[in-house]
Design a protein around this nucleic acid. Structure first.
Lengths: 156, 156
DNA sequence: CGACATTTGTTCCGAGTGGAACTACTTTCC
DNA sequence: GGAAAGTAGTTCCACTCGGAACAAATGTCG
């Protein structure tokens, strides 16, 4: 069978926007994470951890879990690996013995910047068909949706 | 630490659109697939297979791989499971002994409709902040981006 | 026709994933 | 104060995932 057009299928499904986003992510972001893993030895959960810590001076693992909406055990593993690699520091919280305070190191920050550049570059490839106005439109729509989803309970 | 606003971080990263899409997908679509797995015993690759076959009368596994941009071995596993469950039929292609022609069964189509309804319902939860005009905007933008990505080579 | 490259589908295997159970600590409430 | 409930972090385990190597069939080109 001659290759069917992979795009037409999207038009006929009810959840086409969700599927298109998933498609865009799988085609572009996931390969970039694979490349980052090969080049830097850092997996997605580990990079998410760096990203969060690059934007807040101090976070607990639980904070990172809430921000990224990813399970705690993935964060826990990432924390241990990034500690071993010297990309972050951990100190017990004196006011709450259950949690530990995480801080990014300069090495971690430098790594974060390299990885962020890769992701930004790849995003540019995806968004290249859009002009400046359209990008503002998309950005505004996605921002509102992300804000909305952030306010939803865990299992909508 | 009192929970930081999980949304503000997005504004400060260069690849915010990609991250927001990934965030939306992880918060909404992924949980829905988990729910579908629990309720119907069908994982994502298997549902993708059903979805493709629901829209084309006949496809090879390779066609499905190209449409979904997912690796062939995942499709292969999905084909075997869905054959065993009676959700699709397979017959050798008389004109090419390498490939087999896949067709969805009525049972498979019925299952597809149930799962699609779940996904559509969940998409509605995500998109609920947008009015009709904004949805048309988003749809148009995502359509163009998906079309663009479909034309890109595999590893950007 | 015969050697070589391609393509389809499969199996193998190492790695990542997240639910569930667990420990340690804290808060709540009587 | 003490029992019960809740929370942070970890470990365990079954499952999914996708790259790589593979067999079988086809295509290419001398």
């Amino acid at each position: 069978m001659d290759a069917p057009d992979p795009e037409t299928i999207f038009d006929e499904i009810a959840f086409r926007d969700a599927y298109r986003m998933s498609y865009l992510i799988n085609a572009i972001i996931v390969p970039t994470y694979d490349q980052v893993r090969r080049d830097f030895g850092v997996i997605r959960a580990e990079y998410h951890l760096l990203m969060c810590l690059a934007h807040y001076p101090t976070l607990s693992a639980q904070d990172v879990s809430r921000i990224t909406r990813r399970p705690r055990n993935s964060i826990s593993r990432a924390v241990h690996r990034m500690l071993a690699e010297g990309y972050l520091d951990r100190s017990p919280d004196p006011s709450d013995g259950r949690q530990a305070l995480l801080t990014i190191t300069p090495e971690g920050r430098a790594l974060h910047e390299q990885i962020a550049a890769r992701l930004a570059e790849r995003q540019e490839v995806v968004l290249s068909p859009l002009d400046a106005d359209e990008r503002v439109q998309l950005d505004g729509l996605l921002r509102r949706l992300a804000r909305h989803v952030a306010d939803l309970p865990d299992e909508g």
